[in-house]
Design a protein around this nucleic acid. Structure first.
Length: 871
RNA sequence: GGAGGCUUAGCUCAGUUGGGAGAGCGCACCCUUCACAGGGGUGAUGUCGCAGGUUCGAGUCCUGUAGCCUCCACCA
């Protein structure tokens, strides 16, 4: 006997050490020029921490595609890398400094801080590598990248400078979202809105010239110190006469002009609004339009500045409270309404974002977005989304895009390549540092992390240099990512690729959802409901986790983490393991893969090979469409039901045959089918399939070097109708026995009739199947009372004395008669419908007629038996 | 205000050009030398959210509607 697998499937033993061996042998290293290239770049995980189960899902999808493509004969490049994740990492390092040394980043110099940040990066990149290994990701480490490595520095500078020179990057004083805790600007995307309880304050701005009361509402009284004017609608009869006059600001008694602008909605509030250009984006627009002053009344940490007078130094919210109190005391508070309104928070620090006027760098988005949108109509240059609906999300966002604020007041990131002359104040923007650095000071800001990740698909391949990898592996073929970063990332890669490579970054985008906990809640640190993929792997193995993740999800849809389902995946692997042990036990010691001989196949052999062929085709079709759940589920039932439950059992008869040609055919079928099964499963569960492969007679040094199973040509013409019928007959016999309270092993005799009542003669092969699987002995003919049950294509008859249960049989037959009656009337209904006959396809009509006839015959047999029983 | 998703068996979910409702888990009964008791066999359970429409035929297409959820925009 061949060396067999261990008696028990132990995922630790199977997965241990295998990955390093694969990497060491270079199985994941791309570069075979004789093959067609296929590229996936990993969405670079942030070096902020460890991978979570969402990464495991994302990566498994990529790895399945990669391994499938390798089997299909592609030169597969699955490129790894990590993202410096500017603000997120900076916050982590800052928190660590606080915890370990009781200091903040501001207590260090920029250089000192960056040193700490690099230490952090090294530490977590190391952890991420270990995690990738555990997951089994077939990454080409010879091409690993980091979004702040040397090549990226070059790429980012080139992009910045080019866009600047082309007028697509500009510096300007604008209202941006300011995070007063991190003290940095944020992009619109880094702000989330949440309904918070708040208050609407109504104040009286008395009109200086007339003494009229002018009631103005605001939710942010603390910004009133820099109100620059009052605005009313030019057509508003209530206020028309006040235009050009002045109102007294109740916060600081400044007299501010009352001006007209049709921006004001007369229906909203009191119809008059205050305008604070430095603290509100809409007010800013108005301010620009009317040439208003733009004073700010806050510091960058959201405490009040000198423009707030006596409130200087106070926190914005404390100031709000104190100010309202003061205004009330002066009699200018009209009323306060409690409201719930949407308030912007920082994605990172969660504090309330302050619309804040400051000098920042922006990317002019419109022309870039339009270029992408234009190419979405070009079949050759269109990015195709799976599922397709996400292309709408993508395109709609691009259609309504606003300029992108890319500067961040941080240290960890790509520094803006702009310098200011110490003497003249001249601005220099360039890829090279100034020739006379002593005369220049570099812009302090760094760039939004996404500015560099946007270059990922091509900068990882060596761009802006004209490298061989870039020529070969770009554009990427498939990008796999979550719907949550379509705007952050996918859209930005799209326009940068368009602008700088005049190409699409990738042809396909496979979108997946979020993974939630068993109750359907989002996983979060505060809930403590996150699932650590490494713990899952420890408990069930990476193969089980991978199979769970990809066969319980639908593209684009969220999924829940349900431990029982991971366990079900483990059980499936265990089943495969045991079936493999069975096969190995039955192969001869010296058997090689070339000894497979498909002559003299039994009915059962033919049946499984025919089904195997169909399975190979289906899996391939679904893999091509990224429908891994459909592929995985089909494999599950093919392996468990068809291969294990039926074929392995049936093969036992052949393996015990006295005829060596029969035994050989069974061995050949077992080896061929199992080998193909593990190839089909390999992308899903690379560890256990490799283990099995190496124990089986095999042709390559590793399953990684194998090729996708070929459809077996001979098997395409096999007619398995009789075998299918026999299998359903076996089920009916088992059913009859179970219904009669007989043990499965209790022997019975069985006679089979066709639909016309003629005896069916079984071949020796078929009789053996019945004997083996149903513990029923086939007899040509039987006398006496026979219990009857209908089966597709005929009836099964068992001597009643052997079943000894008349009531059961009557009940069963009545139920059967009822079912057949229903089917028959359904069928007749359709066939009596002239519309159906006139419009349905010929084949469908013929099929329905055949069914009707069969139902009729079956029902006749059942009714005849019922009459006998009742007599 | 705009866009999208979900609603199918007790639970979690599939269901890809419209043609006799599925899986896993759970549940009931039976079964152990012979690959696997983390197993085998048999079985029960669904007016496919609701209402219309198109069609010979709708879980599947169209319209409307309810509930839950997500994203985008706006909010003096």
């Amino acid at each position: 006997m061949k060396e067999n697998l261990a008696q028990k499937y132990d995922h630790h033993a199977v997965e241990e050490g295998r990955y390093d061996e694969w990497v060491g042998k270079g199985y994941f290293t791309a570069g075979d020029l004789s093959k067609k290239p296929y590229t996936i770049v990993i969405p670079p995980p942030n070096v902020t921490g460890m991978l979570h189960i969402g990464h495991a899902w994302d990566n498994t999808l990529q790895d399945i595609i990669s391994r499938y493509k390798r089997l299909k004969g592609f030169d597969m490049l699955y490129l790894p890398g990590t993202d410096h994740a500017g603000i997120a990492t900076e916050a982590k390092v800052d928190a660590r400094l606080r915890a370990e040394q009781g200091i903040s980043r501001r207590d260090l110099t920029r250089e000192q801080f960056l040193e700490k940040a690099y230490e952090w990066k090294e530490e977590y990149a190391g952890i991420i590598h270990q995690q990738w290994a555990k997951l089994g990701n077939s990454l080409d480490y010879t091409r690993e990248r980091f979004t702040m490595d040397e090549g990226f520095v070059k790429a980012v500078r080139h992009v910045f400078v080019t866009l600047y020179n082309d007028g697509l990057i500009y510096r300007g004083k604008r209202i941006i979202n300011w995070d007063p805790e991190a003290r940095t600007a944020l992009s619109n995307l880094e702000v989330y809105y949440q309904d918070d309880p708040g208050q609407m304050f109504y104040f009286n701005y008395r009109v200086k010239e007339t003494g009229d009361d002018l009631v103005i509402a605001t939710t942010r009284p603390e910004t009133m110190f820099t109100d620059e004017c009052i605005i009313v609608h030019p057509d508003d009869e209530r206020y028309k006469h006040l235009i050009g006059m002045h109102a007294v600001n109740p916060a600081n008694h400044e007299e501010i002009p009352i001006i007209a602008d049709s921006y004001v909605d007369m229906e909203f509030g009191t119809g008059a609004m205050k305008c604070t250009p430095a603290h509100d984006p809409n007010d800013f627009e108005i301010g620009v339009r009317h040439g208003l002053p733009m004073r700010s009344c806050m510091h960058d940490n959201a405490t009040m500045n000198e423009n707030a007078g006596i409130y200087e130094g106070m926190d914005r919210f404390a100031c709000r409270e104190a100010l309202v109190k003061a205004i009330k005391e002066e009699g200018n508070l009209i009323r306060i309404e409690n409201i719930v309104h949407s308030v912007g928070h920082s994605e990172r620090t969660h504090c309330v974002v302050e619309p804040y006027l400051s000098e920042q760098w922006f990317v002019r988005m419109k022309p870039l977005a339009e270029d992408v949108l234009a190419h979405q109509n070009d079949p050759e240059q269109r990015i195709v989304f799976y599922p397709e609906r996400f292309s709408r999300t993508f395109e709609q966002w691009l259609e309504n895009i606003e300029d992108w604020c890319i500067s961040r007041q941080l240290w960890w990131g790509h520094r803006v390549p702009a310098w200011y002359h110490k003497e003249t104040g001249e601005l220099y923007v360039g890829e090279e540092d100034p020739k006379d650095p002593e005369n220049w000071v570099q812009d302090e800001d760094v760039m939004d992390t996404w500015f560099s990740s946007a270059l990922w698909p091509f900068a990882t391949l060596g761009w802006p240099d004209d490298t061989a990898d870039l020529a070969r592996y770009y554009p990427n073929d498939t990008m796999v990512t979550g719907y949550d970063i379509i705007f952050f990332w996918v859209a930005r890669m799209a326009f940068q690729a368009r602008y700088f490579t005049h190409n699409l970054p990738f042809r396909h985008v496979l979108i997946h959802g979020l993974i939630r906990d068993a109750q359907g809640r989002k996983m979060s640190k505060s809930l403590g409901n996150g699932v650590d993929p490494m713990k899952v792997i420890d408990e069930y193995g990476a193969d089980a986790l991978r199979f769970f993740l990809t066969t319980n999800s639908t593209p684009g849809q969220d999924m829940r983490y349900i431990p029982e389902k991971v366990e079900a995946a483990w059980n499936f692997i265990n089943k495969l393991w045991n079936a493999s042990r069975f096969v190995l036990m039955n192969l001869e010691d010296d058997m090689t893969y070339d000894d497979i001989d498909l002559s003299n196949l039994s009915d059962a052999d033919k049946w499984i090979l025919f089904k195997l062929n169909r399975t190979i085709k289906h899996i391939e079709e679904n893999n091509e469409k990224y429908e891994f759940a459909l592929a995985g589920n089909e494999l599950y039932s093919f392996v468990w039901d068809d291969f294990c439950s039926w074929y392995v059992e049936l093969s036992k008869a052949s393996l015990n045959s006295a005829d060596e040609t029969v035994r050989k055919a069974a061995r050949s079928t077992l080896l061929l089918a199992l080998t193909d099964i593990i190839k089909l499963l390999f992308p899903f569960m690379p560890f256990v399939t490799e283990e099995i492969y190496l124990k089986l007679p095999h042709q390559k040094a590793s399953l990684n070097l194998e090729s996708w199973p070929e459809v077996i040509k001979e098997a395409e013409d096999f007619d398995i109708t009789d075998t299918e019928r026999l299998i359903s007959a076996i089920s009916r016999i088992r059913e009859m026995k179970a219904a009669s309270g007989l043990k499965p092993s209790a022997p019975v005799h069985v006679r089979i009739r066709d639909l016309d009542g003629n005896g069916v003669t079984l071949t020796a092969d078929q009789a053996m199947m019945v004997e083996r699987m149903a513990k029923a002995q086939w007899i040509e003919d039987a006398s006496g009372d026979l219990t009857v049950v209908s089966v597709n294509g005929g009836t099964i008859q068992i001597p009643s004395a052997e079943l000894q249960n008349k009531e059961e049989e009557i009940a069963k037959l009545q139920k059967e008669a009822e079912r057949l009656g229903k089917e028959l009337s359904r069928s007749e209904g359709i066939l009596n419908n002239p519309g159906f006959l006139a419009k349905a396809p010929e084949a469908k009509i013929a099929q329905e007629k055949k069914k009707q006839e069969d139902y009729r015959k079956q029902l006749d047999a059942v009714e005849e038996r019922l009459r006998e029983l009742e007599a």
